[in-house]
Design a binder for these strands. Structure first.
Lengths: 160, 160
DNA sequence: GCAATCCTGACCGCAGTGGTAGGATTTGAG
DNA sequence: CTCAAATCCTACCACTGCGGTCAGGATTGC
């Protein structure tokens, strides 16, 4: 359904949200803490930047910072930026520009009363509603509590 | 997210539900009516039969019949039978036998407070809830009603 | 017997995912 | 000024799974 881009991208945002925000966070540190490949994470961060969810500063001691406070970041925009679309069926492209455009496999005039369209529309609304209800701040709070497993530095809960 | 197995399988069930149910419906007729490849549809029908959603009669004039009335068939069981799992993330396997078993990428004890787990759980519940609310009878009624009513308001979001 | 139909296994092209490689560019620190 | 740290960018690639085909076998009504 969703790919690892969404998984890794959300984890990256949680790391940025857990950080104070005074100075930027490098992808290298996130990749090491989350055990993710750095080169792959770079391309994921590019998606988030293109969507305006993060800002970047290049050069030494550069990195990424959340463009807006975590409370104002709802996960539907995040997943949309990372996955490109939120659609339960591949023939089901949600074009935000126009109204609800649906390219069903029932391509012709038959598509007007395509019954599966009704089903996938409900599923899509269910997914988007679940994502909209969740903010990044909520996930950050969930990730940083229960500090018994990471007492010394709650931002760096590496075991071993 | 979902594959064409779900799309084709649901359409097959709608065809079976639209039929009276007196005598079985052959896959060949459904394949021609829906413009689907017969050999592929056969394997999809096997999934529905294995899940106990349809019954089959072999031989000449054989075919498939709904195992239960369409009102008692909720779409979550249908999609589960066709897709094998309803999970927003590949590391997210819903095992109905035990409790919520989650194999997150944070594999070890760290998975206890894995923040993405919270997000994907909500999405999964949203999808399953949307599917559970929809019955096959509802889709059959939507598919068999007059087309002129559908053409007037194709975006008609009436929940009825 | 024969045709229709369900059933089964093997096979296969293709697109996308997940990841790598290699570099180019910008910037702070010494 | 130089170097290292970091973001950027493009191309490349192995692998998996999807969508589909093919061939054949098993079962039944006429």
């Amino acid at each position: 359904m969703f790919t690892t881009k969404a998984e890794y991208g959300v984890r990256l945002l949680i790391r940025l949200g857990s950080h104070g925000g005074s100075h930027p966070v490098s992808l290298k540190s996130v990749a090491e803490a989350e055990q993710l490949p750095l080169a792959y994470l770079e391309r994921i961060a590019a998606l988030l930047k293109k969507a305006g969810l993060v800002t970047s500063t290049r050069g030494a001691h550069g990195g990424y910072v959340l463009a807006r406070p975590a409370e104002e970041v709802s996960m539907d925009r995040v997943v949309l930026a990372l996955e490109g679309a939120i659609a339960p069926m591949d023939c089901f492209v949600d074009d935000p520009g126009s109204e609800h455009r649906v390219q069903c496999s029932h391509h012709d005039a038959d598509a007007q009363h395509c019954a599966t369209k009704l089903l996938w529309t409900r599923v899509q609304l269910g997914v988007i509603a679940s994502l909209q209800r969740t903010t990044l701040a909520e996930l950050v709070a969930f990730a940083t509590r229960e500090p018994d497993l990471a007492e010394l530095s709650p931002l760096d809960p590496r075991p071993s």
